[in-house]
Design a protein around this nucleic acid. Sequence first.
DNA 1: AAAACATATTGACTTTTTTCGATTTGATGA
DNA 2: TCATCAAATCGAAAAAAGTCAATATGTTTT
Lengths: 105, 105
Amino acid sequence: MRDHAADARVFKAFCDENRLQILEMLRGGEKCACILLENLQISQSTLSHHMKILCDSGIVVSRKEGKWTYYSISEEGSLMAAELLQVLTNSNHDMVNNVCSCHEK
Amino acid sequence: MRDHAADARVFKAFCDENRLQILEMLRGGEKCACILLENLQISQSTLSHHMKILCDSGIVVSRKEGKWTYYSISEEGSLMAAELLQVLTNSNHDMVNNVCSCHEK
DNA sequence: AAAACATATTGACTTTTTTCGATTTGATGA
DNA sequence: TCATCAAATCGAAAAAAGTCAATATGTTTT
């Protein structure tokens, strides 16, 4: 039995346009929050909120260095998401009763 | 340049617990709406709403047969989602300036 | 043609998410 | 120590998503 809330949390990372834009920036490598903020039309508190969601999903990891926080895409988290997507969409063709028979003649 | 709204639409399929439960049922093979409805604690109009989002994402396809509609997981849509996820999380390690240098000494 | 049925659409309401400004926390530098 | 800066948290407002009952649409059956 799967934990739907936990599964949903992973994909929330990709369901908001600002977060997709953040990921786009992180694809170029690790960035600190201030650089991300500079390139987005959102407030500091909103960025912090999105970074929390991205980190909670496991797709992004953060690293503190002094007063700065650096963010990057987690290879491990990305791999887990890919595997999860596989599970969620892999329809089991070996199963008996694979086709709905609720209205057969 | 990516279309963030379109990319987000794909992953919306996996961001709601009812939709994850629907996908879980469809993993066992094609199902008609009435069977899905029987196994969910939601109204008919809410199911219809979720099926629209699932179809819009490309993860699910529908097939009409008389007055019934049958839904199933789209292999093609699932593959596209997997490829998209790859793109969105593939940080480009070949790039120059891969590490944020905004606060170097 | 009318009744019955399955699904989609509409409109209103509720819940969740996003957003911001203000404040707090925690680290650095003067 | 005190001022400064980066990021997180809080509380409120706005926007978006989920929900349902009622109704509409389209198909089948009588």
